[in-house]
């Protein structure tokens, strides 16, 4: 029963959603929205599970003085700080237990929760994202090393596309007559992006879509049950 019940639920839900995709009439039309709402309700309960896991993992490491335990302590303090500030003075227009905290807000310029969010959390998040620029450079360097015909082709295409996106490309190839306009770097870049690149991306998308159909069918029919822990 422990295995069969989830399989029956998966079969019924999958089949209903599949049918609802083609029938706009009530109740089918609103079925997807209803099930999505159910998912969100269950998710909101599961948030508690995540928070418990987070606290447990960090407290255990701090208590056992695991290597780098200070980081876990910092994580716990940050977590507790945000919860306390949020509860006491709220966030944005939502008041907390002590109201809006006008006095503190006047000094900081915003509520403590919003202040930490805007001036600590957001810059930290942006810093992580900005690392991408450096990683793209190092990854591109490795990708464009000429080893064989394919990597040569990749490097030439990349140079054309990168140059083609700059004003420099217009400047160096503007002398090419319109009858040979395709050789102007900006136009050549547009061609590469619009045709070979789009074609390759769509091929991957179509193949992924077929994979989704096959995978969904296996799950609906109960053939694929690894997500339930495997077993026959």
């Amino acid at each position: 029963m422990k295995k069969n019940l989830p399989l029956i639920v998966a079969f019924a839900s999958g089949l209903l959603i599949l049918i609802a995709g083609f029938i706009p009439h009530k109740p089918f039309g609103m079925l997807e929205e209803t099930l999505t709402n159910w998912f969100m309700i269950i998710s909101s309960f599961a948030i508690l599970l995540g928070q418990i896991s987070l606290i447990q993992a960090n407290v255990t490491r701090v208590a056992h003085r695991s290597p780098n335990w200070q980081y876990y302590l910092a994580g716990l303090i940050s977590f507790a700080g945000m919860v306390v500030f949020g509860l006491l003075w709220g966030m944005e227009k939502t008041p907390g237990i002590l109201g809006h905290g006008e006095g503190i807000s006047q000094n900081l310029g915003s509520k403590p929760f919003d202040y930490i969010f805007d001036y600590i959390y957001m810059p930290l998040s942006a810093t992580m994202f900005s690392l991408l620029a450096f990683y793209i450079a190092s990854a591109a360097y490795r990708a464009f090393i000429i080893r064989n015909f394919e990597s040569n082709l990749l490097m030439i295409t990349a140079v054309i596309v990168m140059l083609g996106r700059t004003s420099f490309a217009t400047w160096i190839t503007s002398w090419i007559p319109d009858s040979w306009g395709i050789l102007q770097l900006p136009r050549l870049t547009d061609f590469i992006m619009q045709y070979p690149n789009t074609a390759a991306q769509r091929a991957i998308l179509i193949s992924a879509a077929l994979g989704v159909v096959g995978s969904s069918l296996r799950i609906i029919l109960g053939i694929e049950r690894s997500y339930l822990g495997g077993g026959k």
Binding site: A203, I204, L205, S207, A208, L210, G211, V212, G214, S215, R218, E224, S226
Partner: peptide, 10 residues
């Protein structure tokens, strides 16, 4: 790539 992710388990 693409469908290989979905085919992996099978």
């Amino acid at each position: 790539i693409g469908e290989e992710l979905y085919a992996a388990s099978a």
